[in-house]
Design a protein around this nucleic acid. Sequence first.
RNA 1: GUCCCCUUCGUCUAUCGGUUAGGACACCAGGUUUUCAUCCUGGAAAGAGCGGUUCGAUUCCGCUAGGGGAUGCCA
Length: 463
Amino acid sequence: MEIVTRFAPSPTGHLHIGGVRTALFNWLYAKSNNGKFKLRIEDTDLKRSTEDAKKTIINGLKWLNLNWDDEIVYQSKRLSRHTEIGIKLLESGHAYKCYSTPEELKAMREEAIKNKLPPKYNGCWRERDLQLAPSGVKPVIRIKSPIKGKTILKDLIQGTIEVSNSELDDFIIIRSDGTPTYMLSVVVDDYDMKISHIIRGHDHLTNTLRQQHIYNALGWNIPIHAHIPLIHGSDGSKLSKRHGALGIEAYNEQGFLVNTMLNYLLRLGWSHGDEEIISIENAIKWFNIESIGKSPAKFDIERLNSLNSHYINVMGDSEVIKIITDSYAKKGEIIQKDKLHILKNGIKGLKSRARTTVELTNMSSFYIEETPISLDEKSKKILTDQNCILIKEYVTYLELIKNWNEKSIEENIKSFCNDKKINLGKLAQPLRAALTGKSVSPGLYEVILALGKVETINRINVF
RNA sequence: GUCCCCUUCGUCUAUCGGUUAGGACACCAGGUUUUCAUCCUGGAAAGAGCGGUUCGAUUCCGCUAGGGGAUGCCA
């Protein structure tokens, strides 16, 4: 059997990390089994679906390299096929017309809850003579669910789930306006797309139970299901903005790397022994549904930060520099050749400090700025008249350095402090302020080395 | 209300009946560092509760509690 998975978001808002994780699991499962991963946009709710949301989904998946096979399927374009199947079910006696009004349905539910019974449609039109149909009421079409026995779902993650059929009602497959409902459309599309494995959120579990009856009525094979646990916010409630969970594009904007997002989301609910840093190659090699946990996981931004620092740190220098130059280019600024050279020399210290690429770019600014550079408040305070005299005095020592490397710079600074009988910090802090405009920076020797002798002296002589 | 699911350090998790219950993030302490960060070393930190089954339960079963999901002419 060919493995075919799918990701089927509805374009009604942002692409959330829960959705991305679902997409990732489907993608990985397909990749690790030489199967196909398909994308279907469930845009049948015309009131809530937007073009922006579609773009967000597509761009998000593209950013993360979760590439899909074949064309994107837009569910809205397949409505006639869905109704066709709905009518077929009606004609074959597996479905029936129901004339109950929304008010009547509401009353049924309230009554059921009052009597401690499952709230559901009571099936009154299931066998009723259509002669009794009220005039002026357009019927919906409902599936005939079995009344007796139970419905069993064999789920790859949840195990065997059994629910008594008395809990499940005859749900609507075609609305009174003639359009198919989600419950029907999904089944038809999954069938037509030859989906072999449906990996989706746990919130779909009862849907799956009910959808099985459509498959059965049509004599179609039921795909294999795996319902993955939901992602919760830090307080255990439904994940929302207030937990720091944003649309996937926001993580890109905030400077999180693709590797970070994939690694983080993969480890949220799935594990491979003690492995924490997992490359996409290994993820494909190792991914399996059995190792997906059953309990919901909480979203933890600290973990994401830490993974991101790691991935920035292990990135190649040229790659990191490209990120910086790209972000300057975005602002319409081009980094001059000499500055680029300085940046390359100082990239190591930058990498180890940055937690996001946004931080990285901000941090690198002092290497790129023209002298005189801007000073932050703290560095202004450090640069007292006295300190300015001191650092200028140091220039005479600096000029003596013959071999321009970190070690000789260190020795040079130390010998100056020795001769002046001052602590290293006395010189280092003002020097840092003058050279970087900040009170916090990469190692001073590294900064001086990266700037070069001429630029270092220029920056000091401004004061 | 009804049905379904979940429950190991603060967080993500390992363990597939016998372990000093392991790792990672975060946290704390120390070291390295002129600063901050990195890095290194160490530390504190967990089986929801109660009953079974068993020679032995975190692991299997039941109940309770807590949490989550579903319960739409939304998807």
